[in-house]
């Protein structure tokens, strides 16, 4: 442990109201601590800069998966394990279940939360590309009231997001419009398990009369934020999936993403693999190999 523990403070609010009061009374001073799977790593390494936290782990209001005819809403504290085991998610949002299965190990999956994964705002997070491809919407709450924001507008820059100092992420809403889609998710990690993504690709498409009726593509680890690739989608929409379309889409994607060299991989590898995965996605959904 490289952190000096007396420098840190962790409070436990008794309910959601008190939690929101932490945020409202001293904006920017307190930050939520959910499963801790990202924060504890920084603490151990002595790199956790923020020192005042309140635990949200026991807030029942942020738990549970709510299903209506139109949507499935995940409480922000829904763990990866809960995502993996939910039958509606398995059926209608399979990429999210795969992402949960491929995040960390069992212990991390029991403790790590979808909400935490979003507000930790790592561009290498595994669930956000799937959430982006599924057109997720975020529910935010402060003592002043609730609001909603499309997830694709949430992240604005590296570790930057449209979350006010007094707001808490409470839920993630997924519209149940996936029935006619084909889903393709592939995490390229540094090894088969217990790995951080070097490139993560999530795509859904609707193929009608051999052409792309609808498509949504999102990637992780290729830009300062997890990225919905709308320019690449535009190149594909209405086109038949042939070599020319694939080539144009590859070119569009390479312009749309902005990967870097880092400790885990190279910009060159990420560019090429992202384009290869796009091609594999298109061929796979065209040929109907996946569900």
């Amino acid at each position: 442990m490289r952190a000096y523990l007396p420098d840190y403070e962790l409070r436990v609010p008794k309910d959601l109201e008190e939690a929101l009061a932490f945020l409202a009374n001293e904006p920017g001073m307190w930050k939520p601590f959910a499963g801790g799977t990202d924060l504890m790593v920084l603490l151990e390494a002595g790199k956790l800069e923020h020192t005042k936290f309140f635990s949200v782990w026991n807030l029942a209001e942020l738990r549970g998966i709510e299903v209506t005819d139109e949507s499935v809403t995940l409480g922000a504290l829904t763990t990866y394990t809960e995502v993996r085991r939910n039958s509606i998610l398995q059926e209608e949002f399979p990429m999210l279940c795969v992402a949960a299965r491929e995040t960390g190990g069992i212990a991390i999956q029991n403790r790590g939360t979808i909400g935490g994964n979003i507000v930790n705002a790592s561009p290498a997070a595994d669930s956000p590309p799937a959430l982006l491809a599924y057109d997720a919407e975020l529910e935010l709450l402060s003592s002043k009231g609730a609001r909603k924001i499309p997830y694709k507008d949430f992240h604005t820059g590296y570790k930057q997001m449209k979350l006010r100092d007094d707001e808490l992420l409470t839920g993630i809403r997924l519209p149940r419009t996936t029935k006619s889609l084909r889903h393709y998710y592939r995490k390229v990690g540094t090894r088969k398990a217990q790995a951080i993504s070097k490139v993560c690709f999530a795509g859904v498409a609707k193929i009608e009369d051999e052409s792309v009726a609808d498509v949504r593509i999102a990637l992780g680890s290729v830009a300062p934020i997890v990225l919905r690739c709308e320019k690449t989608e535009a190149v594909l929409r209405g086109k038949s999936v042939d070599e020319r379309t694939i080539s144009a889409a590859r070119a569009a994607l390479i312009n749309e993403i902005a990967p870097i060299d880092d400790i885990r991989s190279t910009a060159k590898y990420r560019l090429r693999v992202a384009a290869n995965l796009l091609e594999d996605f298109l061929k796979t959904v065209r040929d109907g190999e996946l569900n």
Partner: peptide, 23 residues
């Protein structure tokens, strides 16, 4: 081993990759 100025930059098990049983 990722070297930066003669120092191991990936000196943590998250980024120095050894195979797991899956590999």
């Amino acid at each position: 081993v990722v070297w930066r100025d003669g120092r191991m930059a990936n000196n943590q098990m998250t980024n120095y990759i050894i195979p797991t049983s899956a590999d």
